[in-house]
Amino acid sequence: MADRDRLTIELWILRYRPAQDEEPHFVSYTVTYTEEMSVLEALQSIKDEQDGSLSFRWSCRMAICGSCGMMIDGTPKLACSTFLRDLAPGPVKIAPLENFPIERDLVVTVADFVKKIESIYPFIMPKETKPVEAGEYLQTPAQMAAYEPFSDCINCMLCYAACPQFGANPDFIGPGAMALLQRYNGDSRDAGSRERLDLIHGEDGVWSCTAVGLCSEACPKLVDPANAVNQNKTNSAFDFFLRGLRKENHS
């Protein structure tokens, strides 16, 4: 509306262009914004109107595709669901997700995270195989409640950016992949827990976690990855001792 206040806000954006920059540095942009404008929309307006060379990932604009995670004033957030009105008067500092290598500007390397997801057997290993013609597996609402929140992970990687232990050890499997692992382990149709357990022992498994817990606070979908990691510490520990017992039985 014409009579609404047109406000401006300054954004400090961490930029890194591998073709010309040795290291990242902050660049200041000023945008005009309205009450309902998100950080993503601010970045789009900069790209469209001020500097076409600014790079960032985005797609759905509704906090479900998981593309636009970034550090906003030091906190990992989705740019599409963070609003300038809550950051005013600024300046707002925007940087690529913490703990990940920077490909360029606000774009970080995702491949290692996706490899972790792929590594944990992220599919149903059925308890009983049955043909599709025989219909669906039954699952009560209570059985669903045991894993459903873990299936809501949008792979936005905010939890990794919040995790100092992932920052210290990039090979740590991390909260997001563990949430997915628990999503399948907790599913009443699945029988793959045993195989998945072998993947999570050791420092690169669950044992880098010191229960900082900020992963769950960063999660925009209330997935509670900290719960997934810490449950599996218990599982891993039990397994360790039970294995010892089994070995003694064999000898």
Binding site: F123, I124, P126, K130, V132, E133, G135, E136, Y137, L138, Q139, T140, P141, Q143, M144, Y147, E148, S151, Y184, D187, R189, D190
Partner: peptide, 22 residues
């Protein structure tokens, strides 16, 4: 329907009725 059941077999968390059916 066949495809929806296939997705169910692959783990799609379809909302359920109290008796466990989709």
């Amino acid at each position: 329907t066949r495809e929806m059941i296939q997705l169910e077999h692959w783990g799609c968390p379809w909302s359920r009725k109290p008796d466990g059916h989709v």
